[in-house]
Simulated scan of single mutants.
Amino acid sequence: MPVLSDYSDGTPEIAFCLLNPDGGTAASRGADTAFYSASTIKLAVLLAVLQAVDRGELSLEMRFPARDTFSSAVPDGGEFGFPGDEADPGMPAAGTEMSLAAVLDRMITVSSNAATNMAVDLVGFDAVNRTLAGAGAASSYMQRYIGDLAALEAGLTHQVTAADLARTMYALISGKALGPESTEFALGLLARQEFAWIAAGLAPDTVQGSKSGWVTGISHDVAFFAPAGTLLQAPLERAWVLAICTRGYEADAGQEVLAAVAGLAAAVAGSEFSAVVPAG
């Protein structure tokens, strides 16, 4: 059944963008269609924070207190947190010091919302949006904290397109977004991301990393993938980038769509990436 939510009008939709190792578009469908970003926006947050590290404004070793509540982006929005299964059980208690490296790890590998808001606090929304613009993601933006429902009701949101997600990932793997050390750190986090739905459509030995995102009626993923044995360093040679956005599907169906489109992308990229090799 089609899914209606704050982020989905109930009309099933699939968009994707596949970039070849030179950054050119190998295949696409609806790649400039706007979607609610869900947690894929965390890729831009990661790059914005690491760009600040590269400029010497932050360091991965710096420590600051963990938080579980945040102030809304709208003046009368009050404080908000993450109840129930929206909370990250792996985050330390509020007030416990964490390194910036640990915060970014939680943000990417398990998609921690609290860790994301802590990271955004360090650089601000303008920095995240400048990072997107610098990657060529002209139609994407972040206007509020994750989980800020008061800001959502006021019309503030996060937006991406499949093309913009692909461009942002390509800026990372090509070494254009970050210095070498920050690039390797980011690639390592993405490779350990625990909700890698594009990977389900690729050969098991494919070197890959991704940032997925989901809410009711929305399932997205953006990934890089490279031949087995490729080292996670920039520039990531022979790596392809695939971004897929879906709207209007139940969670399981959306994830199946992501894996199916990934399988087709693998066939375009070459037999070494295909999860199922045809007989004969």
Score class of each variant (00 low, 15 high):
D121T: 09
F80M: 10
G95E: 07
A87D: 15
P92N: 11
A101K: 15
D126L: 14
G95C: 03
E79F: 00
M91Q: 08
V110N: 05
L122W: 03
A127W: 07
G84E: 14
S112E: 00
E86R: 08
F80K: 11
D105S: 10
A138F: 02
M118A: 12
I108V: 15
G124R: 15
M62T: 04
N129A: 12
S99K: 12
M118I: 13
M142A: 15
A94T: 08
F125Q: 15
S71A: 14
V120K: 12
A127I: 06
F80W: 06
A138P: 00
Y141R: 14
L122F: 01
L132Y: 09
T131M: 09
P65M: 03
I146A: 09
S99M: 06
A115T: 02
L122S: 05
G136L: 06
Q143E: 13
G124H: 01
G77F: 09
A102M: 10
F70L: 05
P83N: 07
A137M: 05
F70C: 12
T116K: 11
A119D: 01
R106M: 00
G95A: 09
M62K: 04
A133R: 13
D105Q: 10
S72H: 04
S72M: 11
T131F: 12
R67Q: 15
R106V: 01
G77R: 01
D88C: 14
M98F: 02
A137G: 14
N129E: 09
L122N: 06
R63W: 04
D105P: 00
A102L: 08
A101Y: 07
A87Q: 09
A102Y: 10
A119V: 09
T96R: 07
T116N: 02
P65N: 04
E79D: 15
D68N: 13
A114T: 11
A94Q: 12
R144P: 13
D105I: 00
M107E: 00
R67V: 03
G95I: 09
G90V: 00
L132C: 03
A87W: 01
P92R: 05
F125M: 15
N129D: 08
F125I: 14
R130S: 13
P83F: 06
S139D: 13
A87L: 10
P89I: 10
A115G: 12
A94K: 00
T131L: 02
F82G: 11
V128Y: 12
T69W: 08
S72D: 04
A137N: 05
T109K: 11
S99Y: 04
T69E: 13
V74F: 02
G81R: 05
T109Q: 06
A94N: 07
R67W: 07
M62R: 13
G124F: 04
V103H: 02
A135M: 08
T116G: 09
T109C: 03
V128M: 13
D121C: 03
F82K: 09
Q143G: 09
L122Y: 05
E79K: 00
S140Y: 02
R67P: 00
A102C: 01
Q143M: 08
L132D: 04
Y145C: 03
A94D: 13
A73S: 14
T96W: 07
D126K: 15
F70E: 10
A73D: 02
P89G: 07
D85N: 11
Y141T: 11
